[in-house]
């Protein structure tokens, strides 16, 4: 897909990762531009979450390069990723139930004057960020334990906006959400794009992917297995790339019959 800016915000080149005898990723490429949602899809174990963890500094690649604005970077820790402007919503929600919304938004990067937390400024920013997302969190002082799953996902996404990131990685953000909650999260993702961020959306829900993404990149057995324009691609073509079946335009009824000798 063409964008105004030729240099991708984030660019993965030939990433490889091995866990013991298992080749989790082999030579994976991925580009993300600003104002763009790139969906990373694939079957279970295709390597989607491994890619997410490399971008967010939880795992380091064995081979290959990660470039930001065309410059090669290393991302050894989540803190380093954050410093590079990469924010991640992990599949296992990285939120603390016992803390309120503001505390969760700023967890690990609290504002402070001297040794004292600047709770007031944090609350004001929290309210602004939630407004930017059009989120329906009742109060920034609500403890997370009182929120619904969808609201918690909103908080997790709002968290990525603290500290003004440029790239947001979302690992299965709609898993285990109800239909209306999913719709709300998808709206948030569109808001992230409107705010000019580059978004990597990892999912195996084709409806969600087709609803919000601009480009779809398929992984299969840890390798790139196709790239599609989300506006034009057919559901079947994506499924075929995911499962590795030959792309069939229509179902061939004879395919399921025993082959005559």
């Amino acid at each position: 897909m063409s964008t105004a800016n030729d240099v991708p915000l984030l660019s993965l080149r030939g990433l490889g990762k091995r866990f013991g005898a298992v080749e989790a990723l082999v030579d994976v490429d991925l580009d993300v531009y600003a104002h763009e949602v790139v969906a990373l899809v694939g079957d279970n174990g295709a390597g989607k979450s491994t890619v997410a963890k490399m971008i967010s500094g939880v795992l380091t690649p064995d081979t290959g390069l990660i470039e930001i604005d065309g410059e090669t970077v290393t991302i050894p820790t989540p803190i380093a990723a954050h410093a590079l402007g990469i924010a991640t919503v992990f599949q296992e929600l990285a939120l603390a139930d016992n803390l309120d919304v503001t505390s969760n938004l700023f967890l690990g990067r609290e504002l402070h004057r001297g040794r004292v937390r600047d709770d007031e400024t944090m609350e004001q920013i929290a309210r602004k960020v939630l407004r930017d997302l059009n989120s329906r969190i009742p109060s920034v002082k609500s403890p997370l334990s009182t929120l619904s799953k969808g609201q918690r996902q909103s908080v997790a996404i709002a968290r990525t906006l603290i500290g003004r990131p440029r790239i947001v990685v979302l690992d299965e953000p709609t898993a285990a959400l109800s239909v209306s909650q999913t719709a709300e999260v998808l709206t948030h993702i569109e808001r992230l794009r409107d705010l000019g961020l580059g978004v990597v959306l990892i999912s195996h829900n084709m409806n969600d992917v087709r609803a919000v993404s601009d480009r779809i990149i398929v992984l299969r057995h840890g390798r790139n297995n196709g790239e599609f324009d989300a506006a034009t691609v057919s559901h079947e073509a994506i499924l075929a790339a995911i499962t590795g079946a030959p792309p069939t335009r229509e179902l061939d009824p004879t395919a399921f019959l025993p082959t005559p000798h």
Partner: peptide
Amino acid sequence: GGNRLAASLSGV
């Protein structure tokens, strides 16, 4: 105490 994994993923 609330979520050790979350705290460490958040950079605590």
